[in-house]
């Protein structure tokens, strides 16, 4: 399972490196969304706003939706599913690999947007850095949940409008936990408690994915 996971993750990341979709399409979208969030708050309120952690995670959720779709479209190209089925790859390994690749992409985007939050929304650098472990776990949970919901929405072949409807209710608790822990890192509060909630969500989604991804991929 682990070997399959590494193979699938390496394959997805290699495709991403060659296509540069993350660099030229997703990242600019994320930066633009962060700027628009600041504009929506108003120039007078954008700096040092208590809403900065929430806005950061809102943008990350939007970015995640784009990347989940992208991750599933790769599998939707003609012959890919048939090849995976013929090779008899462990579905749990495929799920872990896709989730890992998506997590790596989200982590990279997340770090860039954290820097953006420091720059544009004036979040304190120290607090932002101490929020980093919780950001890593929350984005990991988003990746695991997203991979599962991506497969549920049709694996890149279903209607594009279905993915947000399916995944946003599941992302809501993650967004709350992420926002709370980021806020706690910036302004003080129960950082560990919210970090643990994100960690539990990550473990739960990984377990569900390992158990049920095979059912979704059955032909």
């Amino acid at each position: 399972m682990i070997r399959v996971a590494w193979l699938v993750a390496a394959k997805d990341l290699r495709i991403e490196r060659r296509s540069r979709v993350l660099l030229w399409q997703v990242l600019p979208f994320g930066v633009m969304a962060l700027l628009l969030s600041g504009l929506a708050l108003g120039a007078a309120h954008a700096g040092h706003s208590n809403a900065a952690p929430g806005l950061y995670y809102l943008v990350m959720v939007l970015v995640a939706l784009l990347m989940i779709n992208r991750s599933q479209v790769i599998e939707g190209s003609p012959g890919t599913r048939a090849s995976v089925a013929t090779l008899g790859l462990d579905p749990a390994g495929v799920f872990l690999g896709k989730a890992l690749a998506l997590a790596v992409e989200l982590w990279l985007t997340g770090v860039v947007l954290l820097a953006g939050a420091v720059l544009v929304l004036h979040t304190a650098l120290g607090g932002t850095l101490s929020a980093l472990p919780s950001v890593v776990v929350t984005l990991g949970a988003l990746a695991a949940a997203g991979t599962l919901y991506g497969a549920l929405s049709g694996g890149g072949q279903g209607p594009a409008t279905l993915l947000p409807v399916l995944s946003l209710p599941a992302f809501a608790p993650l967004l709350i936990a992420g926002e709370r822990s980021f806020s706690a890192a910036l302004y003080g509060g129960a950082l560990l408690q919210w970090w643990v909630i994100s960690l539990v969500a990550l473990v739960a989604y990984l377990a569900i994915g390992i158990l049920l991804y095979g059912v979704l991929e059955e032909s």
Partner: peptide, 12 residues
Amino acid sequence: VFTVAYLALRRA
């Protein structure tokens, strides 16, 4: 919203 999403998933 989960229940509505379930119904949307069935229609898709």
